[in-house]
Amino acid sequence: MLKINNITKTFNPGTVNEVRALQGVSVEIEEGGFVCVLGTNGSGKSTALNAVAGAFIVDEGTIKLDGVDITRWSEHKRAKYIGRVFQNPFSGTAPNMSIQENLALAMKRGKTRGIGWGLPKSLVGDFKRLVKPLNMGLEERLESPMGKLSGGQRQALTLLMSTILKPKLLLLDEHTAALDPKTASKVIDLTQQVIAKDRLTTLMVTHSMQQAVNLGDRIIMMHLGKIAYDFRGEDKKRLKVKDLLTLFDELRRKDNIDPSVAALLEEYYI
């Protein structure tokens, strides 16, 4: 389904601000896979998702979606196959447009937009039906501007918008991180329902190990622009929050030691 082969990305190459954000990431996700991505701050999780979404073109490596090489495709072209929810609840919706206009925009994801009416009356009924299960009372407020809604409501709608047309791949980048715990758990429930209903192939970045343990069928842990651990199948099912914490500590301890010294030590002791 998604096949990432040895991608690298360096920001500001050749300057003092050079950051090697991705240093050869390879991963393959099968159809219907639900992968949680963990990792320390700055380990390259967002960069990896952005590389897949096409926010920038990777320096090296290839990205294939459903057998098609999309490495050099522009962001808007990839959007036809990829649904996204961002960390910032303000990023996924247009604040000065109504809820129904936002939904209508999402109904046209990746399609040509001509001079047909942007918000056909026939769609409004569908929108009401789609929004009702969110249990936020939004079905009565379809005409109010998006900017008047809370972060949680906007994030729930962004989730709905990114999946209103079934995407081949769903990218979630810490989409509950900016929400209060109660709203976050509600959005997580919705996420689970949506993914289960359409059997969506999903990459979800999260900082919550509890979420990673509870959700999905695979955990990838990133560190310093690489994939440090990859648990799937039975391994993933056995994994507890405690185990993940231990792994994090291990990575941190390695970090404090000079890489060359670490390699030497490893040779001696392992």
């Binding site: 979404a53 959007a79 990829i82 996924g92 046209k108 937009r113 001079i115």
Partner: peptide
Amino acid sequence: WFFKTNIGTAMRATGDNDQMIRALGVNT
């Protein structure tokens, strides 16, 4: 009328939140 069509709505969205409308497949 134009700003109520599909393309006109996408144009308004471009000014309102370009990141969002790019993620919905529009060449901003």
